[in-house]
Write a protein that binds this DNA or RNA. Structure first.
Lengths: 195, 195
DNA sequence: CCGCATTTGTCAGTCACTGGCGCTACGGGC
DNA sequence: GCCCGTAGCGCCAGTGACTGACAAATGCGG
């Protein structure tokens, strides 16, 4: 019934490949019709697989857009761990965020359509916030492993992430300056606020 | 077919009353069976109304638990506006949070079961994060109306809220000290981090 | 060539949520 | 007392996200 081999010929059905096609199809459809006007069946159809397969690769419709987040988290945690030994908490975070900024700037074109879709869809913003919360938890844990006092780690991670996020927002609104510039300014602003 | 007037007799069907019964029923069922093991039909049945009525009062299953949030937001914004004139941004926020802390401490028993349910349910945590994001946006706006620089308002609101939330978390873990104590300590910690 | 594991297709089912329609109870104007 | 507009509700039918179970296919080592 489905054009399993009809449209694309004998595609390498390696599993990871279907996953990529599903991500691509979802991204396209979310752009064309908007998130809530595209059904999971449509995504699966464009990817050339069954609807059920979609939910085997992703737990729900939203998660398709949040796939690289685990990598970002890992990179951030590693950067925090590798930060110069006696740097205080916020500086260690800034060190990690500068690395993350590099990554974000490199594949900006790649992430931009995704950001627009998320920004336009409340339910996707919710999911994004949840991912951010998981990320700050991970950052707090990384700070603790650095020796940051248990009580301070969570607070430092939360405020640090808020500052990073704020910088990223500024960068989106004004891409003429680099993310790193925005980041440094945001951390300066933070210290100014708390003085 | 339904026991519309059968079980409870001629209840005052004033609309706002059905809403309260729905909230109560949902809270009970979420406690008894957990959020995802209770259906909207069950909530409606216990409240003595039709399932459709549930969705007339609340846009979705989660929102039942987040009803007072608008009040909290209004109270916070008013407190920020009423804060002594030349207080810097973070201090104005602290002023508002101390008022909010009073409110939270007063109906702690009222909110505690709700917190447990939310903490135990990922999808409810997502919604809570979304509400918090709306709240920080409102705080940023309140700060701007106070004359806080446009660029700083968002950052101050985000870090301030993170600090408040952190204090509230500490308070839940250690209720022997007052929320206000935790709040003051958290803001001290924040200034310590940024020094 | 044969099991064996992984991936997928198919089907049936649950449940959140929506639109539409008709009923009914209530409050105000006459 | 009567009419009428409105608001809240019950009811029904429908869409769409997601799940569990089972069978078919695909590819790989023996």
């Amino acid at each position: 019934m489905t054009d399993k081999c009809g449209t694309l010929g004998s595609v390498p059905r390696s599993g990871a490949d279907a996953r990529r096609r599903l991500q691509q199809a979802a991204l396209e459809l979310y752009q064309e019709r908007g998130f809530d006007r595209t059904t999971s069946a449509e995504i699966a159809a464009r990817a050339g697989v069954n609807e059920r397969t979609f939910f085997r690769h992703f737990p729900d419709k939203r998660e398709v857009l949040f796939d690289g987040e685990a990598d970002l988290r890992a990179a951030l945690m590693q950067s925090v761990a590798e930060a110069p030994g006696e740097l205080p908490a916020l500086d260690a975070l800034l060190h990690a965020f500068r690395r993350a900024a590099q990554i974000l700037e490199d594949n900006r074109a790649f992430r931009e359509p995704r950001l627009r879709i998320i920004a336009a869809t409340p339910t996707l913003r919710e999911r994004e916030l949840a991912k951010a919360a998981m990320l700050t938890d991970a950052l707090a844990e990384a700070l603790r492993q650095r020796g940051v006092a248990d009580r301070l780690a969570g607070l430092a991670a939360a405020t640090g992430w808020a500052t990073f996020h704020h910088a990223a927002q500024d960068w989106i609104d004004d891409p003429s300056r680099s993310l790193e510039k925005h980041l440094l300014q945001a951390f300066d602003d933070l210290r100014g606020l708390a003085s």
